[in-house]
Write a protein that binds this DNA or RNA. Structure first.
Lengths: 394, 394
DNA sequence: TTCTGAGCTGAATCGGTTA
DNA sequence: CTAACCGATTCAGCTCAGA
């Protein structure tokens, strides 16, 4: 793709982006005139998102997805235990001069975003604990009405290498209506069928964006440090918009919103300051093949079988720290501790480790080896796991 | 339990609450004097939590768990599809006049809470999307340093009856240190054990409080509208405090924090305005049987083990100066000198420095990198340290 | 062609002690 | 206070080389 001379980037085949709603024209227009101003559809606008949004007609957009800078405030380098260096987010666009500067930034773009939303429009914002509380409070102050907060539980997050905190395994999304009482779009049935027939919950398990989906440059480096998975946008767009709706992303980045919107037959508008991101996003979106409407019906999410750690049995009070577990024949004994480890014969460790140790065996399935007394009989602790499993699955 | 005449509620057997740290007195005191003021331990204080906290000594509490009112502002009643009425949270204490009143309330109690925290203390706050963004922003403004946000994913949430939103299936906790850079308690290994040997993530799956754990009055009505499950507090207390630490809960409610603290051998202080809750909580906590001391011994991290200098290994003659140490694959070699330094490739220094140098790595744990030959096999020199440790510990 | 193991990577506010 | 130094710390999933 040649260097851009105009201010906006238009995918080569923008004309084939066809909103699917019957009432829409067959050929998607490059712009839709609303009031005196034109609405630039299926294009990536350059420049500052507040200025760009303020130049757009009021009340013209059905949904906004925003992935603003997180204000991470990282200090030094971080190395993995194998001494390799973590490629952290250190871009200039993520640096702010303290909370108040970040708050001013947030209020400015939120105000502009709210102005361009239709009365029944909704907004999605994603963030982490570094910024999401400030953004959430600011959007409430601006008059948005929160409908849900959604947790994106990452199936494959980066671990905590130093062992000083919990693995940061999720990000938070806020779904908000422009106004309290607004008649927003929520495709309850579509999401329910996406979720194997049970209503969609506020926690979504999805992998991070990696593999073939992750945009790379010629040298194999990631194009954007925080590219979002298209599956996340798929669920958001499917649940909160109708085919043909206009979706605006003021922090367009690698263009995931545009790619998912095009695939799902929605119109989109991106705003992005960095030319490199605009170029990569335009190329990416141009290569997207929109789904047949029919294909939308068949999408299903996989649900992995949950793993139940032994610790849950203890936390839930099903076994009491201090009590003694025994083997089936009652000859081996071990004492349960509050962190769900066992201690016996001077060794401590997991149910599996201690089970192996007391037998002098190389390995052991502690779930079936260790028993507790219930109503006068010895019952394997695996019975307790089955109770939890049945509850979690239900 | 009789109606209270005094201002505080003391469980009948408060004297048996015994902090487990060796340095503590055998009988837990009703109060601990710090400076000029007394710290009321294992008691439920009445009245306003801000006033009560301000009457406590500064820097006297190890951990705070706070479950503030959620500011739900429900409009009208909520009915299930079968027309039964949902017993919603609509108590007077949960209504605030708009966001600014709630923010003033939040800042007041956060400021008071931060004052009573020890320098290395941490605070946990739980909330939902109605209030957590405001509380999170306020605590950042007050100087708290967020360590993690944690998602409590409910395995059995109340479904969304109207089909207009996602099932609200989680609540959010914020874990924050009093100050940036504070040396907080985090029992990494204990939590890892609790999670089957993999590090604990920021998303926790736990059932809501129901069944026998849920406090009911004589008529079978729930005593408190938002009683938290004890499993949640078990994990928090086990992970973020030591036995004998003082845990404060300024919104004590049904006393889950006190019950879990007592069970886990921690001292606790509750503050609660409503007499009915105080009475129920005191009765509940009095019935809690603390775990054995032995069960409270949790898996210790290597960080907490006494430090053995490598020089001791040489001094004791376990390794002989002049011999050659190698990496696990045998490719890197270094010669041991009498002052317990190594020399290789022209560089000399500690086991760590030379290990890093021969690999060209930024750092290296020499204990696990360097090996010596024992009975024909390569053994890491850390094995020798373990021998000394076992001897020192015994 | 298919399997296996080594290697790499991801929005990260990721030490503590002694001199 | 800073600086030096010790030494603790990772999970899931994809890619690719080699069998």
């Amino acid at each position: 793709m040649p260097a851009e001379t105009s201010q906006t980037v238009v995918p080569r085949d923008a004309k084939t982006v066809r909103p699917a709603a019957a009432a829409r024209p067959r050929k998607a227009p490059r712009s839709r005139v609303v009031g005196a101003q034109a609405l630039p559809l299926n294009q990536i606008l350059s420049g500052d998102c507040v200025e760009r949004m303020n130049a757009m007609p009021e009340g013209s957009v059905d949904m906004i997805f925003a992935d603003p800078p997180y204000n991470l405030q990282l200090r030094g380098d971080l190395h993995r235990p194998d001494n390799s260096k973590v490629d952290a987010v250190d871009d200039a666009w993520d640096r702010f001069d303290g909370f108040s500067a970040y708050d001013r930034f947030s209020r400015a773009w939120l105000k502009a975003a709210r102005r361009v939303l239709k009365p029944g429009g909704t907004m999605w914002v994603i963030g982490s604990y570094h910024n999401i509380f400030r953004v959430g409070a600011a959007l409430q102050d601006e008059g948005f009405w929160i409908l849900n907060d959604i947790v994106w539980r990452k199936s494959n997050p980066m671990p905590n290498f130093r062992g000083r905190r919990f693995t940061n395994a999720h990000e938070t999304l806020i779904w908000a209506a422009r106004d309290e009482g607004g008649k927003y779009t929520f495709n309850y049935e579509a999401l329910k069928s996406l979720n194997d027939g049970v209503q969609m919950r506020s926690d979504w398990v999805l992998p991070i964006c990696s593999g073939g989906e992750r945009l790379k440059d010629e040298a194999g480096r990631k194009v954007h440090p925080t590219q979002k998975p298209e599956a996340l946008l798929h669920r958001i767009i499917l649940g909160a918009t109708q085919p043909g709706d206009v979706i605006l992303d003021p922090f367009f980045g690698s263009g995931t919103t545009g790619a998912a919107a095009r695939r799902l037959g929605r119109a989109w508008i991106g705003i992005e300051r960095e030319e490199g991101y605009r170029t990569a996003a335009a190329k990416r979106i141009a290569e997207v093949k929109p789904y047949d409407m029919e294909a939308l019906q068949t999408t299903r999410s996989r649900r992995a079988a949950p793993r139940i750690p032994f610790g849950q049995v203890v936390e839930r009070g099903m076994l009491r720290p201090g009590m003694v577990l025994t083997s089936a024949d009652g000859r081996r004994k071990a004492k349960l501790r509050a962190d769900a480890t066992l201690s016996a014969d001077g060794t401590t460790g997991s149910i599996h480790q201690v089970g192996a140790a007391v037998q002098g065996a190389p390995s052991c399935n502690g779930w079936t080896f260790w028993h507790f007394e219930k109503d006068g009989a010895l019952v394997p602790i695996d019975w307790l796991r089955q109770q939890i499993l049945a509850e979690v699955e239900a």
